[in-house]
């Protein structure tokens, strides 16, 4: 059976199934929440059960960016660049109150929510959220990936991206 014999829907489902069970996150710990992200990858919580244990140091090999911690204005441009270096398809989890909304730091140097810089798929609030919350967010993301349809996924187009 060739690939053309599959209906588009069935093919989409196969691809979604493959994608959602092998989400590779980029190692992107910013602050306190990064510790809980590390704990989630340790033996007790074992993020490998959800196929997301391969934390890649390079954004070019990653599908998921877990923004774990406070995004400052100084870091914002760097974060955007790293996100743009990730190949499509890519997803973002805003992990922790600071990444979701700036949290308790309503100050001159903190970006009030990472969604001002990159599009966010799943928000996980908490200060810091427990490792279980990260797993919960990951499951929510997997469900979201499972529902994706061709053509409906928009490419990232925020105004004035770094690369044009």
């Amino acid at each position: 059976m060739g690939i053309t014999d599959l209906s588009q829907d069935a093919l989409q489902q196969v691809i979604n199934w493959a994608r959602k069970n092998s989400v590779w996150p980029v190692t992107f710990g910013l602050a306190c929440c990064a510790l809980e992200m590390m704990v989630a990858s340790s033996a007790t919580y074992d993020i490998a059960r959800f196929g997301a244990e391969v934390f890649r140091p390079s954004p070019r090999q990653a599908d998921l960016m877990i923004v774990a911690g406070t995004v400052t204005k100084k870091m914002g441009a760097v974060l955007r660049r790293i996100h743009e270096q990730m190949p499509e398809p890519k997803w973002v989890i805003a992990y922790g109150s600071c990444a979701c909304s700036g949290g308790i730091f309503q100050t001159y140097s903190v970006v009030q929510g990472v969604d001002q810089i990159i599009p966010v798929d799943v928000y996980v609030p908490g200060c810091p959220p427990r490792p279980e919350d990260l797993l919960n967010g990951l499951i929510a993301l997997q469900e979201k990936i499972g529902r994706e349809r061709w053509g409906l996924r928009k490419l990232v187009s925020l105004p004035r991206g770094i690369h044009g």
Binding site: K73, G76, Q106, T107, Y108, S109, V111, Q112, Q116, I117, L158, P159, R160
Partner: peptide, 13 residues
């Protein structure tokens, strides 16, 4: 210097 800075309400970009 205000705590929230001068550009707090403007979008990040």
């Amino acid at each position: 210097f205000p705590l929230k800075g001068t550009e707090f309400d403007q979008p990040f970009w």
